[in-house]
Design a protein around this nucleic acid. Structure first.
Lengths: 165, 165, 165, 165
DNA sequence: TTTT
DNA sequence: TTTT
């Protein structure tokens, strides 16, 4: 059934890249998306939206985005649940990104060295991470957690079953 | 910033209509949205996506949708947090619906009496609940809960501050 | 770059299914999408939105949708141009559907015989035409036109180049 | 009915701002949206998508966006037709933008003088043009054309009837 | 009639 | 050239 989400926002932290036991890459990141309206105190708030992305694009996200990066996400809403360490069922709503667009001007990550690029404010060519299905990643898995958005060293129970395809 | 969600799914239960202390209507409902793909066991799962809607449209949702109704939602992703009764901060991700479309065939709610309507399977005219801003609802508030998706009779702490405009 | 469209509407006519010279299926159809608001004459107008869909899903659309069917489309906006028979360049904006959802109640196509189905108004299981990439269709091509939305028997010049991948 | 479009792309030209006979502002612009995939020649093409925006936001677009600006659009697909000067009916599909987001880094419009802004690449605060309904613009109308995307000095026949609300 |  |  129809399930579509499009977001533009900034990463609240560097993305977290991990691997399932089978070696499939997953990255998690949170987008801060500023609201278009102000609240009753006249402040403009933001929504902090958890996103997951799989496989090759997960590695792209980890390599090219960092805290503060402006990015666009096209994906879908996913819900899942897991039992936490107190034996309580926790429900998660997150966005599974199907493609991520890097919206920073080219070179904005650079540390300071000259750029000599007249295209400085342009979006990099080929900066979409979409349509890279069928690509496989095979590095070994590190510690994989029960909740991809926490990182507290608890035992692993997210498996390849969480792969959205 | 861009924040857009479109869903089509079925209500998992009747919508819950409540009123803020100021008399503003809010309805909560959950959409079961079937996934387009099957999991590794060959089953087609669903996402269970919590939605909120405000004001006149909240009352429309409460009046016209019920458990099992097929509906479309156009809205945005919202996150918020509250402190639960154990003093723990709980983070919520939900969809604020800006418009809801009733996708049931006309008359499918009817109890059995004849319809004599050749348009029986047609979508009802005017079945969009959109573009009804500026309408105000003023009924008195009933018990309002700390989490619009739970309903356990705990003290009220959602106020008009939660109004998304 | 981000380019996403989601529509729900009714087919204005039966879909048109054709095949490229290489045997790839394409279907064209127009969705009438009723506007959520009324015009200054108090009438509710509709937008008539041309859609294209490729491969296996094109055949599904042709087989399962017809004039009047309620359908959801998830896709992207595409523009292209061609030179018409007067040597004039014509610009086309249309929606390339990536998935189509059949929103008619189960059995609504039936000619009249009893159904005995308590789920009569339920959406059919498996009624999404999505995620069917990698499927190939190989029937022979019939007359393929210069504009997939016209059908006037003029020589073919839409080729597999128009395939959106 | 559901009708939602989200785009991110670059303006192909400066926006065109005009006023209806009643003094309502309208701006037209075209977004070049690069495709996520390459064609059979290995080139990455773009879609050139016509957009319209009304009222206060039209003036914002005219003031803040120009050829090459990176912008996000949230809106809906609209179709309409008009009779051209040869008496032929022309059908138009365009995007009615409901909000536009300015995605250029702050200061990228500047002519060259120093900026001394550590937030140089940050999106400007308040750079959404959304949620500004109810605002009225009253300047006098200049030449208004039969097709908002052409500009050939022909007599005016787009009126306030084209206002999408 | 196309942007970077 | 438009659906219910």
């Amino acid at each position: 059934m129809l399930n579509r989400v499009v977001l533009v926002g900034r990463l609240t932290k560097d993305p977290e890249l991990r691997y399932t036991p089978n070696g499939v890459a997953v990255a998690n990141f949170t987008l801060a998306v500023n609201r278009a309206f102000s609240n009753q105190q006249g402040e403009r708030e933001a929504d902090f939206i958890n996103c997951v992305i799989w496989r090759k694009q997960a590695e792209n996200v980890a390599n090219y985005l960092k805290k503060g990066s402006l990015a666009g996400v096209d994906g879908r809403v996913q819900t899942r649940s897991y039992d936490n360490n107190e034996g309580r069922r926790v429900f998660i709503t997150e966005i599974v990104a199907e493609s991520v667009q890097f919206l920073e001007p080219r070179g904005s990550n650079q540390s300071g060295q000259g750029q000599g690029n007249q295209d400085f404010y342009g979006a990099p060519a080929g900066n979409d991470f979409a349509n890279q299905r069928n690509q496989q990643s095979n590095r070994q898995s590190g510690g994989f957690n029960d909740d991809p958005f926490s990182n507290d060293g608890k035992p692993i129970d997210i498996s390849d079953d969480d792969l959205p395809f």
